[in-house]
Each structure stands twice: as C-alpha cells, then as structure tokens.
C-alpha cells in the first residue's frame, strides 16, 4: 500500500507554477530520495505535504486518507515528521530539553528520562546534554533535529537536505542512521543534493524538474538517463 500519495498536486505563486502537477507515490517502507536542480520545486513539495502551503490544486493522501485540508500539527499527530534543511531546534534551550519537548506528547517522568538518555546515546550527544542547543556544531544540530523528529515515532519521516553542511564522514554516518531508522519501520522521503548519500540510502529516486516528476527509478536507472544528466549539466552540476 502507498503510505503517501500526491495526486496532480499543484502550487502556483501568481503565474509561477512551482509545483505543476506532481504525482508521487511512496510505498510503505521505502527510502525515497527527491533530487533535482535548484528551483525544481523540492522544498515547495515538502511544504505542501506538511501543510505549510495550501495547494492550488490536486490532493494529498496519507495512509489511505485525504489530508489535503488538514492543519499541519494534525498531520504530525498522524505520524508524519520532518527535519528541516536549516536546523529547526530550540536554540536557547538545552539539548535535553529539546528532546523533552518532542517527547512529552507520549512520555513523562521516569520513562521520558530513560528515552532521553537512549536518544542522547543514539545521537552521540550525551556529553552535550546540558548544553544550549544553539552552541552545538552544525552537524550536531542536524542530529539533534533528527532526534526530535524521530522521537515522535513517525511512520513517515521527511528529511530536507539532512546532510547539508556536513563533512563526508558525518554524511556517511547520517546515511547509516537513516538506513537504521528505515529498518525500524520508518518510511523516508528525503530531498538531497549529495549523490553519495543518495546512492548510500535510496531505494528509489525521483527527479523533480520544473515542478514535475521528470524521471523515476533506482539511482542507477536515474543516473543512466541522459535527460537527467542534461538538466544537471545545464545547471552546472557535474557530480551526478
């Protein structure tokens, strides 16, 4: 069954068709990567799925239900979770408190304290637990936000450039983390520029171009597609 489906999803800003009829189907259990040149409409598609933008047309289905008109926070409560591109953390609060705020939906007291310790261990942030989250390194902020996103125990995890600004080592480690989360049952949709990361994790890849799905398949199929190479080369990207 498809966990997430967008049907002819559209978003216009004035005359600009940023999302021009996207039909994307995400099967339960896959790691789906969304690639495409800058301005292809990847971030807009995420905002539509999260409900930050209301679509100009089309519909969004999640777990068999039409969620097109659902408020953002209610989508989250149904099991969608997101990690933003720019780390969305609570900078003035401690790392531990960041996690507590994410966890307090379903946990409290002793069981919450245990889960926080487990997450700190998993994110390798144990020694930073009492620090202001704003003082973390960039990569650590990314992990903390992933930790907050997964502490909701989502069925669908959206990752917007999860490795932006990370070193190759950190990127690789993040890839292993994503695969581990997927093995625990999370379906993942990731926007990513780093092709090494996409190769590492993706079960399927969609190429977004001018607000449409331009090509779809495994990473090998997509990179072998001459048209895909063309749009990337046209943009000056040589690392496909």
């Amino acid at each position: 069954m498809n966990l997430l489906e967008t049907r002819d999803l559209q978003k216009h800003f004035g005359g600009l068709h940023v999302t021009a009829g996207v039909n994307l189907a995400l099967a339960q259990g896959e790691i789906h990567c969304l690639i495409g040149p800058n301005g292809a409409g990847k971030s807009t598609l995420f905002k539509l799925i999260l409900g930050e933008y209301a679509p100009s047309g089309g519909s969004i289905w999640y777990g068999g239900d039409d969620i097109t008109g659902l408020a953002p926070h209610l989508r989250i409560r149904r099991g969608i979770s997101v990690k933003f591109q720019v780390p969305g953390i609570f900078a003035a609060l401690s790392v531990r408190q960041n996690l507590a705020i994410a966890l307090q939906h379903h946990l409290e007291g002793h069981s919450m304290a245990e889960e926080i310790e487990r997450l700190l261990e998993y994110l390798n942030l144990r020694s930073e637990a009492a620090q202001r989250a704003g003082n973390l390194s960039h990569g650590q902020k990314q992990w903390l936000e992933i930790g907050m996103a997964i502490s909701l125990k989502p069925r669908l995890l959206l990752l917007d450039e999860p490795t932006a600004g990370m070193s190759p080592e950190e990127t690789h480690a993040t890839g292993e983390m994503v695969k581990d989360l997927n093995a625990r049952g999370m379906t993942v949709l990731a926007v990513e520029h780093d092709m090494a990361f996409v190769r590492q994790v993706a079960s399927r890849v969609s190429v977004l171009h001018f607000g449409r799905i331009f090509a779809q398949g495994t990473i090998d199929e997509v990179t072998a597609d001459e048209r895909v190479a063309e749009i990337y080369l046209g943009q000056g990207h040589h690392h496909v």
């Binding site: 930050e52 953002p72 997101v82 933003f84 609570f90 900078a91 939906h105």
Partner: peptide
Amino acid sequence: NVLVAIRENPLRATMLGY
C-alpha cells in the same frame, strides 16, 4: 515547555504536533 518552544521556533513547535 511548549510556550518556550514557540518562542524559540514556532515552525518547529508546529512540526512537533502542537
């Protein structure tokens, strides 16, 4: 907790389901 979370980052607070 949620009030402070909103002060720090309202979008993140929304995307934690609040």
